[in-house]
Nucleic acid binder design. Structure first.
Length: 580
DNA sequence: GCCGTTTTCGGCCCGACTGTTTTCAGTCG
């Protein structure tokens, strides 16, 4: 996969071109940056696109024209881009790592190289130790110490944090602000509001007549480790959870526009603003402005989209993946909501690697208002989790029967297992045992070092057994820790559709598997999904909101999600599947 | 360098904040 390397090359070229002072270099730089983003986030292998359609196919990608398509072609055929090599000869700088330092942009990076020979982090640290920066033109005592702080921060930086780390923190900050009586309103914006699986920072907007006091309160919160910028409208602080948080205090007239603007995504906003211009408006964070530049005040987000001829777009969809075109046609789907969820089909107890008893899990599920919960412990091959064998399941289920009797239908516990899909595609329990279950969840946990073809046929074979109700965490990835195993998801989705096997959207925050793009990919097939938490304790059941957020990012309605159904309807799906 | 309902030339988002300035440049989002 050459996507990443080509994206990096264009990113570097963007930086170098951007510092040159010609009339168009700024725009040229932006063009390279845009192309870098396109290629860096591309879902297909760019060399496949080139092989199949040549330069012409490359030019169909957004932000790629003739010039850049030819450079991509040059790279794919020769392994080099001549212009890039020449620029690198002139500036042998590791831009990627230097620009990751807070306070260093392309201009300062080049100044540091030309005056001090700084090319990367080690040479920068060397120059910092010798206090050489403060005497440079445009630098000073302050910028030297800020850059030194930036280096320390970058070295301790964990990168993007998980949604499950950022969202609760943002909610905590909102409640601090609201509890102060200094703000009339405080809301979460940015990627947190869009429920992205990882977050680069937190964004919060507030309405207040006491700007200075609010910023003081915000910058003095217990979780703040340092203040990065502080002004009356915008303050940025570093938080002890390893990320930064922006607070913006907004004028009431602009609140809707600001919320739209700061929710993003950037690509979504660029497209929306283009449409605004086409319709004779101007849209920015301060509002929607008419032809003579007058502010159309007091608009909420919905009003803004409607003025622009679109229906309201839920934040989770705002990624410029076709949602704007849908909104213009008034075809935004009615997305799944947390309140639609009637139960959880993937949970564990202390019989294997969970920490709570079935009674405790059932009690918590009832408090959440669920109708049902499937108990799905691991099977014998998964030794690390103390997986159970056929006999142990039989004994366990008799206890579940007793508990169901005691619950008198207030909650129904569905008997199940998270059965291992073995290397050859067979399942880790006897057919007889699987047939005694209400809800069989199947998953790959071992031998993930296979080719895509082998893994796909392994999973398709397991589904073909006609014993599997749910395919759990279909790609096996762990965010920031483990790559997904290679698998052909369209083929898996076809098999699932044939056998009425649900694809899982695993809501565990390290998994979120399927993720949004894979949901969009597989939902083209007539497959149904279930959103499950894989809870290993009672409180893990609260992860459901991350799964629902992911389902919404994949544009799913409740009609596509089986555990939004009441128990009797769900049972039809669970049963039907066995009679295909 | 890209792109097109103002289309093959001439736009392309721009404001907040900070530090080093003495009116502005660089960075960030």
């Amino acid at each position: 996969m050459e996507n990443k390397r080509i994206s990096e090359i264009f990113e570097e070229m963007s930086n170098i071109i951007g510092i040159e002072k010609t009339s168009t270099s700024n725009f040229e730089s932006r063009a390279y940056k845009r192309a870098a983003l396109t290629i860096g986030t591309l879902q297909q292998d760019i060399s496949d696109i080139y092989k199949q359609g040549g330069i012409k196919a490359l030019m169909e990608l957004p932000g790629i024209g003739k010039g850049l398509a030819e450079k991509i072609s040059e790279y794919l055929t020769t392994g080099h881009i001549k212009e890039y090599d020449e620029l690198k000869k002139k500036y042998p700088i590791d831009f990627t790592s230097l620009l990751s330092i807070e306070g260093i942009g392309p201009k300062k990076a080049i100044e540091l190289y030309e005056k001090l020979g700084v090319t990367d982090i080690p040479t920068l640290k060397d120059a910092l130790e010798k206090h050489k920066l403060k005497d440079l033109q445009g630098f000073g005592e302050k910028s030297e110490s800020e850059i030194a702080k930036g280096v320390t921060l970058a070295e301790s930086n964990k990168g993007r944090i998980l949604l499950s780390e950022g969202l609760p923190e943002a909610e905590k900050i909102i409640s601090i602000l609201k509890g102060s009586n200094l703000v009339k309103e405080a809301v979460i914006a940015g990627s947190t509001r869009r429920m992205r699986e990882t977050l680069g920072d937190l964004d919060i907007l507030a309405l207040s007549d006491n700007k200075t006091e609010v910023m003081d309160l915000f910058s003095k919160m217990a979780d703040v480790t340092s203040i990065i910028v502080k002004g009356p409208t915008k303050t940025t602080v570093a938080l002890n959870i390893g990320t930064t948080c922006d607070l913006r205090v907004i004028d009431p007239d602009s609140f809707g526009a600001a919320l739209q603007y700061f929710t993003g995504s950037r690509d979504h906003n660029i497209k929306v603003r283009t449409i605004a211009v086409r319709k004779g408006y101007k849209l920015n964070e301060y509002g929607l402005f008419g032809r003579s530049d007058q502010l159309i005040s007091k608009l909420n987000e919905k009003d803004i989209y409607e003025k622009l001829g679109m229906s309201y777009i839920p934040p989770e969809m705002r990624e410029n993946r076709g949602e704007i075109e849908l909104a213009e046609k008034g075809q935004i789907p009615d997305l799944l909501e947390l309140k639609d969820i009637k139960g959880d089909l993937h949970t564990h107890t202390k019989e294997t690697d969970g920490i709570n008893t079935m009674e405790q899990m059932a009690d918590y599920a009832m408090r959440k208002g669920y109708e049902y919960i499937a108990t799905t412990n691991h099977t014998k091959s998964l030794k690390v989790a103390h997986g159970m064998d056929d006999k142990q399941f039989e004994e366990y289920f008799s206890k579940v029967d007793e508990l169901n009797d005691r619950l008198k239908g207030k909650l129904t516990i569905l008997k199940g297992a998270e059965v291992d899909i073995l290397k050859d595609g067979s399942l880790d329990l006897l057919d007889k045992t699987l047939e005694s279950m209400d809800c069989v969840v199947a998953a790959v946990h071992s031998s993930t070092n296979m080719t895509e073809e082998q893994m796909t046929s392994r999973i398709v074979k397991a589904i073909g057994s006609n014993q599997v109700n749910v395919l759990a965490h279909p790609t096996g990835r762990l965010i920031n820790e483990r790559e997904p195993y290679p698998v052909n998801l369209p083929k898996v989705a076809e098999a699932c559709a044939d056998m009425r096997t649900m694809l899982e959207i695993n809501a565990s925050p390290q998994r979120l598997d399927l993720n949004d793009t894979n949901i969009l990919l597989t939902s083209k097939y007539p497959v149904i999904y279930s959103v499950n938490t894989d809870a290993h304790s009672t409180i893990h059941m609260d992860f459901m909101r991350y799964g629902v957020g992911t389902a919404r990012r994949g544009w799913l309605t409740k009609e596509r999600v089986a555990n939004s159904l009441p128990l009797n309807k769900l049972r039809e799906i669970l049963k039907k599947q066995k009679n295909v």
